[in-house]
Amino acid sequence: MDQDERIDALEARIAYQDQTIEELNAALTEQWKVIDLLSKKLAMMEEQVRSGSYIADPATEKPPPHY
């Protein structure tokens, strides 16, 4: 394998690695968005539990399906 072929092979390899890095970055960014959303929801639920507002109003709550 001469030097030009080796350089071409390395350039192709780098191009695939760049594409993979971009795809991983996009997936990681999306996962952090989900984590942030879930963290906010968890904090909201913790606050509801602490304040006692997690108990549903019996007038508006439907009975469970087994009733």
Rank of each mutant, 00 (worst) to 15 (best):
D8G: 09
E22V: 07
S39F: 07
D18V: 12
L24I: 08
P64K: 07
E22P: 00
W32H: 14
Y16K: 15
M45N: 15
R50L: 13
D8E: 15
A12C: 00
L24Q: 12
E47C: 05
V34N: 01
L24D: 12
L10M: 14
S51A: 09
T29L: 02
L37E: 14
A59T: 12
L10I: 10
S53C: 04
I7L: 13
S51P: 01
S53G: 08
G52T: 04
V49H: 10
S51D: 03
L10K: 03
A56E: 14
K41S: 10
E61S: 06
S39I: 03
E5G: 02
Y54C: 05
E11C: 06
I35Y: 08
L37K: 10
T60F: 03
Q31K: 13
E61H: 09
L42S: 09
A59M: 05
K41W: 04
S53Q: 04
D57M: 02
Y16V: 13
D8A: 13
Y16A: 14
S51L: 14
Q48E: 07
I35E: 08
L28E: 03
P64N: 07
D57R: 02
Q17N: 15
A43F: 00
D18S: 10
G52F: 03
A43T: 02
E61Y: 04
N25T: 15
V34R: 03
T29K: 02
K62T: 02
D36R: 03
S39Y: 01
V34C: 03
Q19L: 13
L37D: 02
Q17T: 05
A9S: 11
E23M: 15
K33E: 10
S39N: 11
T60L: 04
L28Q: 12
L28P: 00
K62G: 03
E5P: 00
V49I: 15
L24C: 09
S39A: 04
T20K: 09
A12L: 03
L42Y: 01
T20Q: 15
K40A: 12
A26L: 11
E5L: 12
R13A: 11
N25Y: 14
S51C: 07
V49R: 13
L24V: 11
Y54P: 00
L38E: 07
L37Q: 10
E46I: 01
I35C: 03
N25M: 14
A15H: 01
G52A: 05
E46G: 00
T20M: 11
K40E: 15
L24W: 04
D36K: 11
P58R: 08
W32P: 00
Q48A: 15
E61D: 13
Q31E: 13
T29Q: 05
Q31T: 08
S39R: 09
Q31I: 09
G52V: 05
Y16L: 15
P63D: 14
I14G: 00
Q17A: 11
Q19R: 12
A9L: 05
A15P: 00
E11T: 13
